Computed example of a mutant assay.
Amino acid sequence: MDLITKGRFTPQQLTNQNNQKGMASPHHIAMELVGPKAGGSSSAVAVHHMFVVVVDGVESDIHEGTLHGSPGKVTVTSPGNLSADGLRSVVVRGGGGGAVVFTLCGDAAAEGVESASFVQCGATRVDGAREVSVSRCRSLEAEQAGKVTVERCREARLRGGGLLRATRCRRADVESFGEVRLARCKGVRADWCGSLEVQMCRAVDASRCGAVSGDRCRRVNVAGCGSVAVTHAVVKTVEEEQLQSQQTVSPQSSE
């Protein structure tokens, strides 16, 4: 992996600096914030916006510049904001509460960032972000997220959050969200959600939700929910144990 920064250090000078800092492993490389006016304030900003990036199993620290993988790259576009493009496997942590954008990556994960966006990736994972956007990815796992928007994701599994909007997902498994709105999803399981709205979904299993509403769903099973108002749908109230046994089997397409 090549390491490129915006400074003017030679490879030998970088090596000497790393040796002076007592780094024991070449796989953990701290990138320096270098500029004509770099001083104490710049160093404080650099530490605050430092990302920890793991690319194909190799961990590096970066607050500016570009990390090149084989293939793909990671680039700090501005202080606290980072983009990852075309990488097979990448994990991004920290950054001082900034934003991370993943595009055309295989396995991609974000931890402890302010916002995370995934576009046309494989398996995606995010933990603790206030805002999450996922488009055309194979799968999503999200925990303790604020606002989540998902479009055309095969498998979405979400645990603990505020607001969820999902469209055209093959399977959506949601637990402990305040407000959930799902449209054109094939299989939906929602548990312990404040409100659940479903539009034109094929099969919906809802348990222990405050209110369930929507329109034009093929089958809706509810257990232990408050109010239920789904029009143009076959709505069935089932026992909670029966609903849990049904959830172990994925809905089959009848088309």
Rank of each mutant, 00 (worst) to 15 (best):
D2W: 05
L3K: 11
T5L: 10
P11R: 06
Q17F: 13
N18H: 11
Q20R: 13
Q20A: 14
A30P: 13
A30I: 14
E32V: 03
L33K: 03
V34E: 09
V34C: 11
P36H: 07
A38G: 08
A38K: 06
G40I: 08
S41D: 11
S43C: 03
V45T: 11
V45W: 11
V45Y: 08
F51C: 01
V52E: 12
V53W: 00
V53K: 00
G57R: 08
V58N: 05
V58S: 04
E64F: 02
E64K: 04
G65N: 05
L67K: 05
H68F: 06
H68Y: 10
G69I: 01
G69L: 01
P71S: 11
G72L: 08
K73A: 12
K73T: 13
K73P: 08
V74Y: 01
V74G: 02
V76W: 01
S78R: 08
S78L: 07
P79F: 08
G86I: 02
V90L: 00
V91K: 00
G96W: 06
G96E: 12
G98D: 12
V100H: 00
V101A: 12
V101G: 02
V101I: 06
T103V: 14
G106Q: 10
A108K: 00
A108M: 05
E111N: 09
G112T: 04
E114Q: 10
S115F: 03
S115A: 15
S117A: 15
F118Q: 02
F118G: 00
G122T: 02
A123T: 01
A123N: 08
A123P: 02
T124K: 02
R125Y: 04
R125L: 04
G128P: 08
R130V: 14
R130L: 13
V132K: 08
V134N: 00
S139Q: 10
A142Q: 06
A142P: 09
E143V: 13
Q144A: 12
K147D: 14
V150A: 05
R152K: 11
C153H: 00
R154F: 12
R154P: 01
A156P: 00
R157D: 05
R159Y: 06
G160N: 08
G162L: 12
L164I: 11
A166T: 04
A166P: 01
R168W: 00
R170M: 05
R171T: 07
E175A: 15
E179T: 14
V180W: 02
V180H: 02
R181F: 02
L182N: 01
L182P: 01
R184V: 12
G187S: 14
G187E: 10
V188F: 02
W192N: 15
C193T: 15
G194M: 14
G194P: 13
G194C: 13
E197T: 14
V198I: 14
Q199T: 14
R202C: 12
D205L: 15
A206D: 14
V212Q: 02
S213N: 13
G214F: 02
D215Y: 04
D215M: 09
R216M: 08
R218D: 04
N221F: 13
V222M: 04
V222K: 02
G224F: 01
G226W: 07
V228F: 09
V228N: 11
V230I: 04
H232F: 07
K236V: 15
T237Q: 13
T237R: 12
V238G: 07
E240T: 09
Q242P: 03
S245Q: 14
S250T: 07
P251Y: 03
P251C: 06
P251S: 07
E255T: 06
E255C: 06
